[in-house]
Amino acid sequence: MEAATKPKLRVATTSLAGCFGCHMSFLDIDERLFDLVKLVEFDRSPLTDIKHCGPCDIGIIEGGLCNAENVHVLREFRANCKTLIAIGACAVNGGLPAQRNHLSLASILEEVYHAQHGLVDGFIPNDPELPLPLDKVHPIHEVVKVDYFIPGCPPSGDAIWKVLTDLLAGREPELGHGLIHYD
């Protein structure tokens, strides 16, 4: 196979303010993962123990931007990845966490850590180790340039497979009916 002679493409993946549902969907490509790893190798990803994204051909971002650390990781991916793909509703349009955007962050923190029934000695965490939450949740294209989008909550394994195989074959990715979903 030609793939054996070509250097493998490096792929990094991460979940920002996501729920790992898109990564689960990615693993729903099942045994096709083994066809994929003939052509690619993984850099930073929840599947490996690499903590920082190095130079990569493809970066796959799940999740939107909820806190300052999400922004740093996203910028690191953009700086290192030739092609950046937003995967799933959160990365594409903020997703369900963006439903907090019409509320003030203070009122949400207050509700979650303080006011709710059962939180007797509750207080809002302020440990310096914790990333600061952003005022609003943002889709990733509002901060960096994104090359391709795979909508869906989550996109199906087949949709992810289609985009990746199109890209690896040098084609413009196209989903079409049945693969393009927002739900």
């Binding site: 594409v92 889709p139 909508p151 393009i180």
Partner: peptide, 19 residues
């Protein structure tokens, strides 16, 4: 949603208002 599927809308492109 269905019309957006039909028109291959992959992203919102613009910044959200979140009213």
């Amino acid at each position: 949603q269905a019309t957006a599927y039909e028109m291959d809308m992959m992203s919102p492109h613009f910044d959200h208002f979140f009213p």
